[in-house]
């Protein structure tokens, strides 16, 4: 049997490493913020939050349900959803990569990542 001090150290170490990792995720971001909305792993929308000048809302509908998403300069949130748990709605605004919004019942993920909108490679 280990001493209690040993276990305190282990738990403190796990906490420290996790905090460090969270800080690294945030600091390693190259700046800029592009929100990527995926449903079932497919990107449905990519929004450069830095390029948003005026707030607007739109609805993502899929076979599992619908989420109304609100965009404002630099931030994004789920305004309304017909999912049972409403976790995505209650999470509120996000603006960085640390806490993505997940609506598990609808398989919808909103993740903000650094960088700017890649734009397009060619126009047709």
């Amino acid at each position: 049997m280990r001493s209690t001090r040993f276990w305190v150290l282990i738990v403190a170490a796990v906490l420290a490493v996790s905090l460090l990792a969270a800080a690294v995720v945030r600091l390693a971001s190259p700046g800029g913020s592009v929100a990527e909305i995926t449903v079932d792993g497919q990107v449905v929308e990519r929004i450069d939050l830095d390029r948003v000048t005026e707030g607007y809302t739109f609805t993502v509908e899929d076979e599992w349900g619908s989420n109304t998403i609100q965009v404002e300069p630099g931030r994004i949130r789920v305004l309304e959803a017909d999912c049972p748990d409403q976790v995505c709605v209650r999470q509120g605004w996000i603006s960085d990569e640390v806490t993505p919004i997940v609506c598990l019942p609808h398989r919808l993920v909103i993740q903000v990542s650094g960088g700017t909108d890649a734009g397009v490679d060619a126009l047709s």
Partner: peptide
């Protein structure tokens, strides 16, 4: 499970935050 259901492997960046939360709530 969230990665498997939403098919979004990049959700792994979420792990540090959840670990911090896990340590605190677990405590």
């Amino acid at each position: 499970v969230a990665i498997a259901i939403t098919r979004t492997p990049s959700l792994v960046v979420y792990l540090p935050v959840l670990l911090v939360s896990g340590v605190i709530t677990g405590l």
